[in-house]
Write a protein that binds this DNA or RNA. Structure first.
Length: 569
RNA sequence: GCUCCUGUGGUGUAGUCCGGCUAAGCAUACUGCCCUCUCAAGGCAGUGAUCUCGGGUUCAAAUCCCGACGGGAGCACCA
């Protein structure tokens, strides 16, 4: 054991002791030595004894003595360590080159966009931005039975609202001829075959891992079959299958469908095509052909990775990196059409923009800001663990965005009348925001006010309350209605401070308060509270869509002249 | 049933690939204080995780290996 090593050990021991009230432990010193000097990892025993010896010595020294020795011999210890900076945003991408990353968001126009779409779009967009690359919107529209213009439009509107920009906008169906070309290529190389079995048969064979007799036909036969798919065959009569591996553990690889016949009219292409590519085939070809370098999807597609790679290998095409993330859903707020559709049909939920729903349109109406959604989603990271985020995580992000721009207004519910006998003024000016300069509003007054029923409950006769921005009122009479006197004392400490509304021009609105839609898998019959609210006439001056904070109540978004929707506390 | 993914405070995550720095960072929630003519925002402080469990490897395990258990997904001519 040479002197240099002993010195190093002593240094570490001293440093550690100094940072921990003069005491150190040999285990800690050992760990530190081993992590900085890997060459000792083979000589742990040997070095361990020396450490024990030195640690004992150091622990004998007084705290001041330790400091003195450090100052003399190892002054560098006293320089404060730099903090390790935490990574911001998403983790770096595998195999990514600055300026060369291409990502995409491929929604199917078969429903209204929701928070799950937002996650996929935002993650992919964020990566493109991070690497100064390109971002493509590709409408994945290869099932004519499901796609509709209405959904297509809603998705565009939703993405626009989120503030997501695309470099290229296209449809999967733009490339039908390319799919056909690649399909034929697979047939010609013997990697795809036409199968005319019944659905049940195919399904059974898959389950039992049995090779289908159709896969034994020769290429010529398959070409004939393929041609018949465009004319003679009826839907369901024949499909083109990929020659995968019927014995594979991954069921997706058991000779999956590449093309099938659908005679339904397509929402943009009409009856131009009847042979449609399956999802896996379309995605594989499109991602490769569009130059996608990194494709992120939610993890229910994880088993598809192998297939997509296999298809591209079979065609000798370039493969993108594929990544996966967990589905995002809020607790008690399902996104699935299977669950939402019946609720709408039964009238339990008004429409896909009902404020209780996690659709983008609902979130917007509810007063959730796109920036909040983006921050929220990025805060969830790229995990594959199931995320069932509570809605209040989003709310807290939103509150921060909304607070600075929300006008403060008074609102009163379950109103109780209050008459103030000696009010010395006929109007009052109230600032619209406590910090930010958002102007003032003038409220005309007479002796008649409303206060909230909840607040009235806490008032005792003979005590004073403070009407915010107005003054202190001494309550002189209580019998259903309240009567009070304006008192000069302007002290604002230790007094109940409440909001109020003048009776003569109070504006009545309805506030929709969305609650959790499902509780323990069961529809929550009380999920939408409708509150009758008396607010200041100034409400009428606000633009639709403006965010308001009703003082001591919470943030709401103006939905119309007569209705507001509660965003959150 | 078979296959795959996943499991860190109340909640959401970072760290896990490439084991090491006095039992874990951040956000949110909660509590207290400050600020405040709001129960908001802002500021400060605090509570709270032996990293699902059990074995193993190692001087050293949230991190590697094996097993159990919990959660999710796939087994469509949907995407």
């Amino acid at each position: 054991m040479n002197e240099e090593v002993r010195k190093e050990i002593r240094k570490i021991a001293l440093q550690n002791a100094f940072e921990h009230e003069g005491k150190t432990q040999d285990k800690i010193v050992l760990v530190k030595i081993l992590s900085t000097k890997p060459e000792f990892r083979t000589k742990v025993k040997e070095i361990g004894e020396v450490i024990t010896e030195i640690v004992n010595q150091v622990n004998q020294i007084s705290f001041d003595g330790q400091r003195k020795e450090i100052e003399e011999n190892f002054p560098e210890i006293l320089i404060p360590k730099e903090k390790i900076e935490e990574r911001e945003g998403l983790p770096p991408l595998e195999g990514a080159q600055q300026g060369k990353v291409v990502t995409r968001f491929p929604p199917e126009p078969n429903g209204y966009p929701h928070i799950g779409h937002a996650k996929a779009a935002i993650i992919n967009a964020e990566y493109a931005k991070m690497y100064d690359g390109k971002f493509i919107l590709r409408m994945d529209d290869t099932n004519p039975e499901a796609e509709r213009m209405e959904y297509h439009a809603a998705i565009k509107v939703g993405l626009d609202w989120l503030g997501i920009k695309f470099d290229v906008i296209k449809n999967t169906s733009d490339d039908m001829e390319l799919f056909y070309k690649k399909g034929i290529e697979l047939i010609n190389s013997g990697k795809a075959y036409v199968c005319t079995c019944k659905r049940d048969n195919i399904s059974n064979n898959r389950r039992e891992r049995k090779v289908c007799k159709c896969s034994l036909g020769d290429i010529k036969h398959n070409i004939q079959g393929w041609e018949k798919m465009f004319e003679k065959f009826k839907p369901g009569d024949a499909i083109l299958r990929f020659r995968g591996d019927m014995k594979a553990d991954n069921a997706v690889m058991r000779d999956p469908v590449l093309f099938r016949i659908i005679d339904e009219k397509h929402y943009t292409l009409g009856n131009k095509y009847r042979v449609w590519p399956s999802y896996d085939f379309a995605v594989a070809i499109e991602d490769s052909n569009d130059g996608i370098t990194h494709a992120f999807r939610s993890k229910e597609f994880e088993l598809r990775k192998e297939l997509i790679d296999a298809i591209l290998d079979a065609l000798g095409m370039r493969k993108p990196h594929q990544g996966f993330f967990s589905r995002l859903e809020f607790k008690g707020m399902p996104v699935s059409k299977r669950i939402l559709k019946p609720l709408i049909e039964e009238g339990k939920v008004s429409w896909y923009d009902d404020p209780r729903l996690p659709t983008l349109e609902s979130l917007r109406r509810r007063g959730i800001k796109p920036e909040a959604i983006r921050k929220f989603i990025l805060s969830l990271g790229l995990t594959k663990a199931n995320t069932l985020a509570p809605f209040d995580a989003l709310e807290s992000f939103n509150r921060k965005f909304v607070d600075a721009n929300s006008i403060r207004l008074y609102m009163v519910s379950k109103p109780i009348k209050l008459r103030i006998k000696n009010l010395p003024f006929s109007f009052v000016e109230i600032p619209n925001h406590p910090i930010k300069d958002m102007g003032k509003r003038k409220i005309d007054l007479d002796e008649n006010f409303y206060i909230s029923g909840e607040d009235a409950k806490n008032i005792k006769e003979g005590t004073s309350i403070r009407l915010l921005a107005l003054g202190n009122i001494m309550i002189s009479k209580m019998n259903g209605e309240l009567e009070g006197e304006f008192v000069k004392n302007d002290s604002t400490v230790d007094i109940q401070k409440i909001q109020w509304v003048p009776q003569k021009n109070a504006h009545v609105i309805k506030i929709l308060i969305p609650k959790q839609l499902f509780i323990d898998e069961k529809f929550n019959e009380d999920s939408l509270e409708e509150l009758v609210a008396y607010t200041e006439p100034h409400y009428l001056q606000l633009k639709e869509g403006e965010e308001i904070q009703f003082v001591r109540f919470g943030y709401c978004r103006k939905d119309s002249q007569n209705q507001a929707i509660f965003s959150h506390k």
